[in-house]
Design a binder for these strands. Sequence first.
DNA 1: TTGTCATATGACAGTAGTGTCATATGCAAA
DNA 2: TTTGCATATGACACTACTGTCATATGACAA
Lengths: 225, 225
Amino acid sequence: MPKQTFFNLPEEKRQTIMRAAMEEFASAGYDLSSIQKIIKASDIPRGSFYQYFENKADLFGEVMVEITRRKMVYIRPVIDRDAEYGLFELMKELVKAGVEFGMCDPIAFQVAKGLSSSKTLDMVAFLNEYKKEIYQRNHITEESIYLAAIQNSLGRGEIDSRFSVETILAYTGKIMESMGELYWHHLAEYHDVHAGDHILDDMIHILRYGLSSNNLPGKEAGNHD
Amino acid sequence: MPKQTFFNLPEEKRQTIMRAAMEEFASAGYDLSSIQKIIKASDIPRGSFYQYFENKADLFGEVMVEITRRKMVYIRPVIDRDAEYGLFELMKELVKAGVEFGMCDPIAFQVAKGLSSSKTLDMVAFLNEYKKEIYQRNHITEESIYLAAIQNSLGRGEIDSRFSVETILAYTGKIMESMGELYWHHLAEYHDVHAGDHILDDMIHILRYGLSSNNLPGKEAGNHD
DNA sequence: TTGTCATATGACAGTAGTGTCATATGCAAA
DNA sequence: TTTGCATATGACACTACTGTCATATGACAA
């Protein structure tokens, strides 16, 4: 956590520092970023930096808190309606929300994206600690987002009962990642906002039919409501 | 490419340097690794290092060549039989081969794993160049590995014709990655060589039925050979 | 023996960064 | 006006690194 001094700063100065920090983290990644660059870009003296922050990790933590705050603007509405969604719709909406975030706030998005790189021990430890805190602060857990939807879909018979909740939970995150990356890759390649839509549709299609293999029309009679 | 001097070195000395380099890259990752550490660990004077290599990237390139050589020992037999496999068997076998490699040669594996992190521009550029070269050297391309199997499976009607080869190709890599990571994660967690097997089975199951949705018994008659 | 060439060596200059500290500033209270 | 406190400042000492270069070594060829 930054020191109180930082929070006492006038809004504008705080913003300047945060912006400079985000740009540095976005372009260089955590490992290669330097405090030196950040203080030059935000034009604060070296001594002041240490008046505000313990060190680079401390600043980075605050940046991540800000980024999460921003991302939540896009994600929150989807999560709040998770009971209404089946798993597949939920996943689709979450990926879409993520992409929306990435397009509206590319610098913040870039920093978050860089996180999945950088597998230093320090960084892994930080991420674990950070995730716990973030989810707590937002009154959710990574699991809780999907849990309701999975049980929902299982209950409705959309998902074959051969799969355990645990198993599905394990895939969900990884597949979300893949979908996001593919979508993003398509976007970058074709410069078309909806270029990646069919990716989502196809992946969700595969998932839906793959997970429901038992319940397809014809395999079991009278299962279509 | 390292300088000729390096290749003129006695086998043993070359090995020592490569081992030290791999260990450094494995533990620190490319960005945070240092030449200094490597020359201390392999006990060669600083000047000699630059007699052998242009710089860190040069050494890293050679390390990657070595790692690929080692990994190929596990992958090659599978690739050579790709015409026999359907896409799903091929993927399964490739993931298994990858895991086998990771268990037999953890340091090399760790370096390769770290690669998918480190998204510096330099690193991305290097990877593209490197991949091209490696695949050339081994007379394959990333696509060619899966292409035959995909066409195979499409031809046999195992995959719904609604999906283009292009689309399937795009997923394949990402899904392979996810499977590998999940398998590996399970292995680490349960210390059981076959703990991840059901992950593979489940994911392949989902993929198989998801991709073949049109062709399931009952949807179209007389399609089972 | 002497010359030549490849290679070995480590001191060195230079760069980029970190965290600290003595001192300065400015405001508000006594 | 004086004192005290929070904050500001940048010089400084330190560390970790990189790439180069003048010089040393050793083997082989003339």
